[in-house]
Each structure stands twice: as structure tokens, then as C-alpha cells.
Write a protein that binds this DNA or RNA. Sequence first.
DNA 1: AAACCGGGGTT
DNA 2: AACCCAGGTTT
Length: 354
Amino acid sequence: MDSRYFSDKVVEWYVRHKRDLPWRDTTDPYKVWLSEIILQQTRVKQGLPYYLDFIKMFPTVWDLASAPEQRVLRLWQGLGYYTRARNLHKCAKVIVSSFDGQFPKSYKELLELPGIGDYTAAAIASFSFKEPVAVVDGNVFRVLSRVFGIKAEINSPAGKRIFASLAEGLLNKEMPDSHNQALMEFGALNCIPKNPPCLTCHLRPHCYAAQEGLQSILPMKVKSKPPRSRYLYYLVVRRRKSLLMRKRNDRDIWHGLFDFYSIESFQPISRGSLQAKIRQALGENVRLDDVSISASYKHILTHQVIHARFVLITGKLDHSEDKNLKFYTFERINDLPKPVLITRFLSDHKSFYS
DNA sequence: AAACCGGGGTT
DNA sequence: AACCCAGGTTT
């Protein structure tokens, strides 16, 4: 199929079916950038309220750059992949301090900024500055693999190169913004992962997968390893109107977020050995007649399964060798950025902490 | 090249 | 319960 014909067909579909989304009303690179970072690995329905909150709280890149990182993380709470939020903040600071608040206009320069990779650089360059570069996101992988019958695996380095070069060849350089938007929107709404409506699709006559009935196996992927299990035993220590919280600063999950002191292992810990570890961590003055689990959550992530157990602790704390441990009042805890798991626990135990 | 990094949704 | 969505950085 001719490149131009393909592009025209998809854009034609886009004009009739596109969603009305706030970041499509503008070419302001700040808004385009913010929306693209939020929308990485995140569906529009989930990301939209966060986008609106961020624009309200930080209307310009200067507002975002001058905010404390904790406020940015707090606003990001619940979205996941928190390095996105830290890079968002870092990038805003770079834009203000090194670029006078103006985003660089080329794909190549955008690529140098923190948190901006191939996809996001191409999105900003084409949407805001009409640079003729092709975006290749999960939707584009899916549409191209099906329409052109590309069986290369979309998550292998070699496969990615194949799709990137195909996408570049297909790009309509006269209107890269509409072309890119159209291809992604078509993938998001019509050429969907499961049970796509091929029978009513206007690309059907030109689509390899639809003709061969292969839409369920395209795109191809190499499958990943099963996730590993982790066991987190959270010690919930209350002192009057305060809870002992800890800022996670190690190179691990939830970096920069607040949770409770925890004993962590890749295997479940027995009652007796947990009791010993608690004494070792908190000292002899902790009252430990029992280490009953007051709550238990299974938190399924892409690469790991977290088994979280919460143990309520009474008595006083002897040593706190961990400098990140500190008591925070209940009111203050609301402002701390926390993993969803902790938010869930606090919400389930309102009577305990308020 | 492979591993790591969270949330949520659908079947 | 099993599976799906998926871009950027680090190792």
C-alpha cells in the first residue's frame, strides 16, 4: 500500500473519530510535554485528572520548576512509575535554568532532556513544532504490525528498529502532527489489542492481519519472566497523634515516597523470626506480646508481586538508626507522597489513626 | 540485551 | 486468576 494513501486513510478516520482532549487544543510544548509524560504507560482515562491537576497547580514550566519535589510527587501519587515525576521536575528545572523557560525545538535536543526518550521527543517535536519525525508508541506498533504483517517482535531491539524505520517511511511530512496523532488514536480506539472490529474497519481491504485472520497474534512479543514475590512487613508505630514514617531513599521501589518501617524479604517470614527481627530493629522497650497482622494486601505489579503485612506496634521506640525515620502528625501525613498501598491501609484504618 | 520501575483495566 | 497496557533509564 502506498504510504500517502495509508496516511490519508488514517487521518480521514481520525478527523471523524478523535477524542476531544485538553492537550490537543494547544501546541504549547509545556502542555504537550506534561501530557506525554503522564500518558506514558497510562491510559487517557486514568491520566486525564492528573493532567488537569498539574495544569491547575503548575500553569507554567516556571511554576513546576520552583516547586519542592515533594509537592510534585504528592500530586503524582497513585499514578505509579515515580521516576517519571522526578524526571518531570528535573526537566522543568533544566528548561528554566538552561533554556530560559523555552523548550528546545528539535527532536535531537529534546532527546537530551531527563525523562524524554525517542517517543516523547518525537511527540513534542511533531505536535508543537511540526518537525517531520514519526512517533512510535504501543499503538503504532500494533497498527503497523497488523496492517503490514510485520512479525518482528515489538519488544526486541531488532524489532524496534524495523518498526521505527517503517514508521519513518510512512510519515506524511507535510502534516506530521496530524499523521502521528491519527495513527496513535486509531490504535487506541479502533485497532485495539483484543477483539478489534476488523469487519467494520475501513482499512480492512488493505490490512494483512484482517485478510489473514491474524489480528489476535499480531503484534508479536517475546514473553517476559514471571514476576518475583516480595514480602514486606510494615511496623505501624503510633505515638499519640503521630505515626512513624520513613522516606524511602534506597535504589528500590517507591524511591522518594513515604511508608512505614518495614522488614523486607523475598520469602515469607515466620512469626517467631519476625518477632526477633522487630526487637532487633526497635529495641527491648517495644511491647510485643503478639505480632498479629492487622492487615494484609497483595499488590501485583508488572515485575514483582508485593505481599504487604501490617503489624500494629505499641510501646516506645529505643533506637532509630535509620535517619529517614520520623514521627509525623496525622494531618501532616496527608501531605506526604505515599505508595498506594499505604494510602489504602490508612483509609482502611481511619479509626486507628484519627 | 536484559532488568528495573507502578498503577489500573479486561477476560 | 491470568493476562494486558508500555516508555525511559540503568546495569
